[in-house]
Amino acid sequence: MTDLTPITALGTAEAPSVAFGPLTVAEDARLGLASLALRRGADVPEPMGLKLPGPGDCVAGAGVGAFWTGPGQWMLEAPGRAEEDFAAEVARNAPGCSVTEQTDGWAAFDIVSDAGAAPVDALLERLVNLPPASLLPGKATRTVLEHLGVFVIRRAGDRLTVLGMRSAAGSLWHALTVAAKRREDAG
């Protein structure tokens, strides 16, 4: 294996994690990502046992997950496996599809609540202009957040992941932490 040392999207050695009352905001520097697009006339595959979801949805399988990103296109996730060539594995498991490495295209931020869904809903109200139905558990969509294009993935009522362009990680971290702090201050 290589002896080069990676850094996080925020440019640090370790991924930061900060608590704001019931919410904790942390970078997940270990999420592997690969895009999968269907070729013309192809059937929808079930790579690694995943039933690829429909528009606006996400699914989680055994050690992998996926969310819909466009007609015939999905983003596959491999928690903890950012150092691996996950795209190569997906390509093997979905022959004939167009697979692209996306791991370091994105900075991933996890927001976890220790008080149920309400703090997460209150935070989302300040960040994205989406109707609550698009933010229910099991939903995932791309939208605008503080002038940045982001994927918002509601894994559970008390768990949210936000993916933004890796190069803009600092701006996204600022937006998320300021909003979380304000929710904490508002009580």
Binding site: S35, A37, R40, S98, T100, S167
Partner: peptide, 15 residues
């Protein structure tokens, strides 16, 4: 739309 081609941006993914 009949051409078999897929696109995705990869600007940030590769240093």
């Amino acid at each position: 739309p009949d051409l078999d081609v897929q696109l995705i941006s990869a600007t940030d993914a590769w240093a």
